[in-house]
Design a protein around this nucleic acid. Sequence first.
DNA 1: TCAAATCGCGCAAACGTTTTCTCTGTTTTT
DNA 2: AAAAACAGAGAAAACGTTTGCGCGATTTGA
Lengths: 348, 348
Amino acid sequence: MTLKEIAALSGVHSSTVSRILNSPDDSFASREVREKVWKIVRETGYVPNHNAQSLRKRGTREVPGGNGLIDCILGRTKNMEDNPFFSGAARAVAAQALSLGYSVQVFYSALEPETHPLAIKSARQLGAVVLGRFENEAVERILESQYKNIVYLGRNPINAAWDQIICDGYMATQTALEHLISCGHTRIAYIGERKHEVRYKAYMDMAAKDRLEKDSSLIVDCPQNGAGGFQGAERLLKQAKLLPTAIFCATDVVAIAVMSKLLEVGIRVPEQVSVIGMDNIDLAGYVSPMLTTVEIPMIEMANVAVQTLISRIKKLHRIPLKITLPCKLVIRRSVASINSGAFEGMYI
Amino acid sequence: MTLKEIAALSGVHSSTVSRILNSPDDSFASREVREKVWKIVRETGYVPNHNAQSLRKRGTREVPGGNGLIDCILGRTKNMEDNPFFSGAARAVAAQALSLGYSVQVFYSALEPETHPLAIKSARQLGAVVLGRFENEAVERILESQYKNIVYLGRNPINAAWDQIICDGYMATQTALEHLISCGHTRIAYIGERKHEVRYKAYMDMAAKDRLEKDSSLIVDCPQNGAGGFQGAERLLKQAKLLPTAIFCATDVVAIAVMSKLLEVGIRVPEQVSVIGMDNIDLAGYVSPMLTTVEIPMIEMANVAVQTLISRIKKLHRIPLKITLPCKLVIRRSVASINSGAFEGMYI
DNA sequence: TCAAATCGCGCAAACGTTTTCTCTGTTTTT
DNA sequence: AAAAACAGAGAAAACGTTTGCGCGATTTGA
């Protein structure tokens, strides 16, 4: 079904049909012809060809019905299966955009300019929310050139002219560690990834400042999933010269798996070892002991990102915004103060 | 940057540039001009306008570099935040497609033909994997008319001509319940959603066949997330006339929260009550006790869906395929046999 | 050496829209 | 009653590609 066919059926010219469909308040054409066209459109189930629309309009623009389309572009992650983080964020972006009347297409793009230089298939919608990093800066620059509006979520933009919504993972880690320290812990283990992990960097910097005990036998490098955490805890118990009084886990999933392992070998949390996680996933409050963690406000971040993008699309602001959302310490049961009665002994 | 500009810069016609970029084995044009064009394309960071391409090609078709683009369309879910199921599936689809050299765009579409009849913004790519249901059949039919290739994942197609990949949730539930029954349990509680939940239906049918004790005080209707499971367990303990010997939880997340609540009130799993979950999420094997569950092979389903779609795109098959993947019982620790030593007593 | 086949490349027509421009015929203004 | 404004709707040009066709120039085969 094309516009021309609709036009033929209604006995008017295609341009007239177009105008009728696009007039914001049904104010175009005579009542008679307008209703006839709409009737035929409905009967025939006609949907405009989005490619043709976007082509003609030189990139999608706001449409009267308010049904704009925005993109959400995900960088390449090493292991997509194990990493719900990005898709969780993408889902939050989608949810917020939908609630504001926009459609969303999330790009899991095989950007591989080495394989094929023209691999980028983005379709230049109203704008894009970009998450994560790509192979190289060249790709990112090309990507950037495709959109008139971009908001970066959780990362730095290449071009400082774009908006940026972040929650400092570095600071979040500091928050978690500070909490442990305020509870009297200094002998704190790290379980999680080391490479490319800002949380690890924050941990190390904290140690460098002598706020934590420096002991490389307390550091376990493992994938940030259930299996990783479980085996990570196992390794920690084996390799630690002296057991820690607290364990910092790079994610909640890791933390839950770690606690499970500790329980298995008879170590009680938090009486003997405190455990802290990161992210505040749904389950964190519903395991036992309930997990103390630092919440990365992903949903709020996504909401703000979408709002910022729309604001930019509508040209409500022009200067680049850098919005940092605060992380929040969620205190539950898995961390005990060394000086309190709950803590039963420094070393097992 | 357009093809024409590239052409102007290289001193050839735009059609020549197009052919050079699209020739599979660099076999077009003279070496000299070919290299010049590629050089300029690289320098200038030119990327073809995907809308124009798709428009001209009347829907995207396979391209030489193998960088096709396929869609993954998600139905509307009541509560996007709480429902990682769909986005997990979408992620699996994306991962598989990427590994096969295709790009993916996931549509979270605000399909609201009542608000605006032309809301569908799908861009007619190579084909689509469709998940979930939409407001009404009319929308689904329109959607269907937009694609030349569709595979339905986890649901029935509207039009029986399309392929369909499913894992019978009904059967999966039966598998779980059969396992409990084989362990001697008949007084089995249900915790999870009731409305639109095939798992609930399977439970009720099983009860109707007198395989389970019929007792409505054992049925708890709650959201299928951490909070829901936790409070659900609480409600169960209050309302049950006689406590169950086993609890069937509609999802693993619910099951983990339920176990946490049971532990909190001093009920031991599986010694006093067995718990079984569904889905086999990452964490299921890393909580304590390790959760017995039925695995819905979502990743395999997504893989098969993508392969089927590609097979259809390449016209390797024409008849509609209906592929049912088996679910798998994953036996861990949270279910004990009534007759075994592990089970300590029927009622607490 | 000449016709035939091949090659390299330009021309122009599509693809399905939106939008500017133009042309009627009607209504309002002075 | 003549001029000016206006509304309704068609014609046609664009948006950026791909692709069938055709035309010279080169290579091939006998």
